[in-house]
């Protein structure tokens, strides 16, 4: 757990650096495309099971629709934390603990977060 936390902090600070440097548009597009695939894939994020997301079909209505995410999460690190382990904000949440249960790797979560942040 401590290790995981360290890893998270490392990735988060890495993102912060990238944030300052800024994404090139090409990297953004490529990253988001992959992030979208991972988010929609039933064996990976399967976010559509519960959330309605633009560009995805048959989104569920268990959870809030994911729209205007930059306004909701100005800091992408906060968004990543929510995707990594939603239990921190709501211990009884139905949203799967993607990082601690090994459903998604931290690399995959980075890509999904970039895509979700672009919505």
């Amino acid at each position: 757990m401590q290790k995981l936390f360290n890893k998270l902090t490392v990735t988060i600070s890495a993102i912060a650096v990238v944030g300052i440097v800024g994404f090139s548009t090409a990297v953004m597009a490529g990253g988001n495309d992959e992030g979208k695939k991972l988010a929609f894939n039933k064996k990976k994020g399967n976010c559509l099971a519960c959330h309605t997301i633009a560009g995805g079909e048959m989104g569920g209505n268990i959870a809030p629709p994911l729209v205007a995410m930059k306004a909701r999460f100005p800091d992408i690190a906060v968004l990543k934390a929510q995707i990594s382990d939603a239990r921190v904000n709501n211990p009884n949440t139905i949203m799967p603990p993607f990082a601690p249960h090994g459903i998604l790797t931290s690399g995959e979560i980075d890509k999904i977060a970039a895509f979700i942040h672009s919505l």
Binding site: A49, G59, G60, N61, I62, I94, P96
Partner: peptide
């Protein structure tokens, strides 16, 4: 997830 997550708290809602 618990049985109750789907069939109590979210009964009537859509999962995909």
């Amino acid at each position: 997830m618990a049985c109750a997550d789907c069939h109590v708290y979210n009964a009537g809602k859509s999962i995909r």
